[in-house]
Simulated scan of single mutants.
Amino acid sequence: MAHDIARREVRDGGVAGRLLDSSAKLSYDPMVEVDWETPLDTDFHGASPEWSTLYGTAYWDELTDAQRKELTRQEAASVASTGIWFEMILQQMILRDVYAKDPTSETVQWALTEIADECRHSIMFARGAKKLRAPAYRPRRLVVEMGRAFKTLAFGEAAYAAILVAEEVLDVMQRDWMRDERVVPFVRTINNIHVVEESRHMKFARDETRKRLAKAGWLRRQVQALVVAVSSYIIVSSMVNTKVYANAGLDRDRAVREAKANEHHKAMLRSSCAGLMEFLASARLLTKPALVFYKRANLI
Rank of each mutant, 00 (worst) to 15 (best):
residue 45 H to W: 01
residue 85 W to R: 14
residue 66 A to K: 13
residue 38 T to D: 07
residue 80 A to L: 15
residue 62 E to G: 03
residue 88 M to H: 14
residue 78 S to D: 05
residue 44 F to G: 11
residue 68 R to G: 01
residue 97 D to T: 05
residue 60 W to P: 01
residue 57 T to D: 07
residue 73 R to P: 09
residue 63 L to V: 00
residue 36 W to Q: 07
residue 70 E to Q: 15
residue 91 Q to K: 12
residue 62 E to R: 02
residue 42 T to M: 12
residue 50 E to P: 02
residue 52 S to Y: 00
residue 27 S to K: 14
residue 81 S to N: 12
residue 93 M to H: 05
residue 55 Y to M: 01
residue 35 D to K: 06
residue 97 D to L: 04
residue 52 S to Q: 01
residue 55 Y to T: 00
residue 49 P to I: 00
residue 44 F to N: 10
residue 45 H to Q: 03
residue 80 A to M: 14
residue 73 R to K: 11
residue 82 T to R: 09
residue 74 Q to I: 05
residue 27 S to N: 15
residue 62 E to L: 02
residue 85 W to F: 06
residue 34 V to G: 05
residue 27 S to Q: 15
residue 56 G to M: 02
residue 47 A to P: 00
residue 63 L to C: 01
residue 68 R to I: 00
residue 27 S to M: 13
residue 30 P to Y: 04
residue 93 M to T: 07
residue 55 Y to I: 00
residue 40 L to I: 14
residue 43 D to E: 09
residue 94 I to H: 10
residue 50 E to S: 03
residue 88 M to D: 10
residue 99 Y to H: 12
residue 62 E to C: 02
residue 96 R to W: 08
residue 63 L to W: 00
residue 85 W to P: 03
residue 76 A to N: 14
residue 56 G to S: 08
residue 40 L to V: 14
residue 80 A to H: 15
residue 69 K to I: 12
residue 68 R to V: 00
residue 50 E to D: 10
residue 95 L to N: 08
residue 98 V to K: 05
residue 99 Y to F: 11
residue 77 A to I: 12
residue 62 E to I: 02
residue 55 Y to F: 03
residue 55 Y to H: 02
residue 82 T to D: 11
residue 56 G to A: 05
residue 54 L to V: 05
residue 86 F to R: 14
residue 42 T to Y: 08
residue 58 A to E: 06
residue 47 A to I: 00
residue 90 L to S: 11
residue 89 I to H: 08
residue 36 W to N: 05
residue 67 Q to S: 03
residue 46 G to W: 03
residue 92 Q to C: 08
residue 75 E to A: 03
residue 42 T to W: 12
residue 40 L to Y: 15
residue 96 R to L: 09
residue 55 Y to K: 01
residue 37 E to W: 10
residue 39 P to L: 10
residue 40 L to P: 15
residue 75 E to Q: 09
residue 33 E to A: 11
residue 43 D to R: 09
residue 87 E to T: 12
residue 53 T to P: 00
residue 30 P to L: 06
residue 78 S to P: 12
residue 90 L to E: 09
residue 70 E to N: 07
residue 69 K to W: 07
residue 91 Q to L: 15
residue 32 V to D: 14
residue 92 Q to W: 12
residue 30 P to Q: 06
residue 32 V to R: 11
residue 70 E to K: 13
residue 43 D to K: 04
residue 48 S to N: 07
residue 96 R to I: 04
residue 68 R to A: 01
residue 92 Q to A: 11
residue 82 T to K: 14
residue 35 D to G: 07
residue 49 P to G: 00
residue 68 R to Q: 02
residue 59 Y to T: 02
residue 92 Q to L: 15
residue 43 D to M: 06
residue 66 A to S: 14
residue 76 A to T: 12
residue 71 L to P: 03
residue 28 Y to A: 09
residue 33 E to P: 07
residue 37 E to M: 09
residue 84 I to A: 14
residue 74 Q to C: 04
residue 55 Y to W: 03
residue 64 T to V: 06
residue 71 L to K: 06
residue 50 E to V: 03
residue 60 W to K: 02
residue 33 E to T: 12
residue 97 D to N: 06
residue 54 L to M: 11
